[in-house]
Design a binder for these strands. Sequence first.
DNA 1: GAGTTTGAAACT
DNA 2: CAGTTTCAAACTC
Length: 402
Amino acid sequence: MPAGDGKLETGKRFRHVSLQETIRFPCSCQSTQCQLTYPDYHMEPQSSQYHIVTGPVPGPPDSSHHSLISAPWFTNEPVLCSMMPQDLHVPVAGICVPQAMHPQQFHEGLSEFTSHLTQPASSTVVCNVSGGGQVVLVNPCEPEPMFLTLKSASQHRDNSPNQEKDVSVLGNPSQLPQQQQAACSLYESRDQTANMQLPVPRSQTVGTLYETKSRKPCHCTRSLCLKLYCECFAYGVMCSNCDCSNCHNNAEHEMKRQKAIESCLGRNPDAFRSKAAGGKSGGVKGWHNKGCNCKRSGCLKNYCECYEANIKCTSSCKCVGCSNFLNSSEMGVKEKFVNGNKSPVSVISPAVVEAVCGCQLARAKEAEREAQSPSQAEHMVLDEFGHCLTQIVVAIFQNKAH
DNA sequence: GAGTTTGAAACT
DNA sequence: CAGTTTCAAACTC
């Protein structure tokens, strides 16, 4: 939604919750409940888990709401999405709810929501309640949500000893005025050494990235930091406090940088998207969009992108001698199944459900991106579901065979 | 810290 | 698309 049109971009709130607090939401299948992750989000090494809650969020008293529902498969009902800590860079665009809600209603709803959470509410819900950079900070310990500008929110965060310092922003930062973007420390990484510059606007297709991952300084010497060899560049950020030489990944060489970005996107339109979906929540933690090609590391060293992202290798990988497939807990599940103590359904672990839902969501977003008709989008999602189901069935039979 | 190994990215 | 080269991070000593 364009900023500054006087309407609110509402409907997104999130908080940190513990690993065990995965909240389920009604999936499109209607008959079951699914957990959902967002495969396009980026990794943040953190132990907690985020949930995005789409639903009515009160704006300032003088504001109005309007619908941002951008795809027919999204629901107006509040949706709790299990979201991996690694996954935050930008929320699902356009999930929003049209009607306004009285602040008291909101607070009651929030209380109900937080009452289901076991973790003490030291964390903060951050809502982008307008495209113009206004946010609401909601600490369930506090009686009222606090409406702030991004800048003041940042100050509030910094001054609040009880709050985590890793507040992130919901809402598309590229929609904010440039000054606010520059001034907004909410966009900064937890790792203060990492500068989280704004990505190239979506029109230049890097824009879905909004990296919050801690990032080490790069040491590039020959790539000018303008190739994907450079981690900073690959993350969509400019180099800062790096040990690179002859760096062109900075504002000084913005033209070259843009050309390099275009070049990368020309080779691979998804070059700046996260390769990993899912997260470090235990068990199977996600999947690598492309898969690794390791040959000698057994996928058990950080050379392996899957291993490094703390995710398991999948059929997408072309690795040789892979040992990065089952951990002990999943072995336990497998053994129970093989021993006949559990039904085959037990292999459909929460992680698998997460992965399936993630795939479906990815397809939905793809359909949205391609401006497909609702029926076509539905078809694509169902098609993906069928594909996932096939893989699950194959896995079940493979387990039986062992 | 220097040298080696590794696999992704880039190139042909 | 496959093979090769380049590159920088991960790793070892």
